[in-house]
């Protein structure tokens, strides 16, 4: 990256400080230990939402991320319980399997555009759920339960990640793992968007025929992007299954797929960090509204509609002038704000 300003570095530093130090300290002070689970979920869901965002980047509305998250969760769970593999090895395998599936399914369906693609991916979520119900290896509606906690990961005798079963505070460990994954994921996304591939994607988002006519291989490009997107979905799903220690066909369903899309839209489609902010706002907001009991859904949906009415281009369009990349400082500030609530 040629032009990283000191402001951006500061922003990233504040953001990292916020998620790795400030949040655990704040939770320790306030004693709201349940927030660990919420924030861990936010981190993992935002990884999957980043995948959705990436497919949008090539001009496709993806409402099928739940399918890939479910595939990832099942692959990891089956490998851990039936084969007895180490969870940390199954994690990338889950992502790769989801990506492979995405390539196979993407070859035909990526030819679709607009609402057609949106609707077929929505159907895909349902297909995967029904397949999980029908296959013997996934154990049907009973799901796979009591998945062991992640084991130790070591290279040449040096422990990289300790055995989770021996840890005193598993929640905190999961929180750190999820945050690390999220940071890696968004760093990779930022790099990707500002690379040659990102430029090609933008050209495709604007006009596929034109992009193709100037020599962009759109057919392979969209498969690559869809595979990356599904890889992220698979990773997020696998990690989620490991935290919940169980996977059911209903772990990720149509509503979740729609939610991934909503997180992405709400954060703003023009900004790399949009999915993160959108997930934080919607998922965290939903949990905060729990205190309102039966009015939870009413308030939540009203807020969503109002946000859409007044900020139809996403939350991040609020502060930033048109066409400018979001700066990480604002992002980190918001994250810290949200976390300290």
């Amino acid at each position: 990256m040629k032009n990283i300003t000191s402001k951006q570095i500061a922003g990233v530093a504040i953001f990292l400080f916020a998620i790795y130090v400030a949040v655990p300290v704040l939770i320790g002070v306030t004693g709201r230990w349940d927030f660990y689970f919420t924030l861990t979920s936010v981190a993992l869901l935002s990884i999957a939402a980043a995948g959705v965002w990436l497919t949008f980047y090539i001009g496709r509305i993806n409402i099928g991320q739940g399918a890939f998250a479910l595939i990832g969760a099942y692959v990891s769970a089956i490998l851990v319980t039936k084969v007895g593999m180490n969870f940390w090895i199954t994690l990338p395998l889950a992502g790769l399997f989801a990506a492979l599936f995405a390539v196979l399914i993407g070859l035909p369906i990526l030819r679709l555009r607009g609402v057609y693609f949106a609707m077929i991916t929505l159907v895909l979520t349902e297909v995967v759920k029904l397949t999980a119900l029908a296959l013997p290896v996934t154990n049907g509606a009973k799901g796979i339960v009591s998945i062991p906690l992640p084991q130790e990961l070591s290279i040449f005798g040096i422990t990289l990640i300790p055995d989770f079963a021996t840890l005193s505070n598993v929640k905190l460990a999961f929180y750190y793992v999820a945050c690390t994954l999220m940071v890696i994921c968004f760093a990779a996304m930022y790099r990707l968007v500002n690379s040659r591939l990102g430029h090609l994607c933008r050209s495709m988002q604007q006009n596929e025929e034109l992009a193709s006519s100037i020599g962009v291989n759109i057919a392979s490009l969209r498969i690559i992007v869809f595979a990356i997107s599904s890889f992220l979905g698979g990773i997020g799903g696998a990690m989620f299954g490991s935290i919940a220690q169980s996977v059911y066909p209903s772990t990720f369903q149509v509503a979740d797929s729609v939610n991934f899309m909503l997180y992405t839209f709400l954060g703003g489609l023009g900004y790399v960090f949009g999915p993160m902010l959108g997930t934080l706002t919607l998922y965290f907001g939903w949990n905060l509204l729990f205190e309102f009991g039966k009015y939870q859904l009413l308030i939540y949906s009203s807020i969503m509609i109002l946000l859409m009415l007044f900020l139809p281009n996403g939350l991040l369009s609020l502060r930033l002038p048109k066409g400018k990349k979001p700066n990480a400082a604002a992002e980190a500030g918001k994250k810290a704000e949200g976390a300290s609530k």
Partner: peptide
């Protein structure tokens, strides 16, 4: 973008 209406519809 047209797609914003999808979020609204879901809302």
């Amino acid at each position: 973008r047209d797609e914003s209406t999808m979020l609204l519809a879901a809302g």
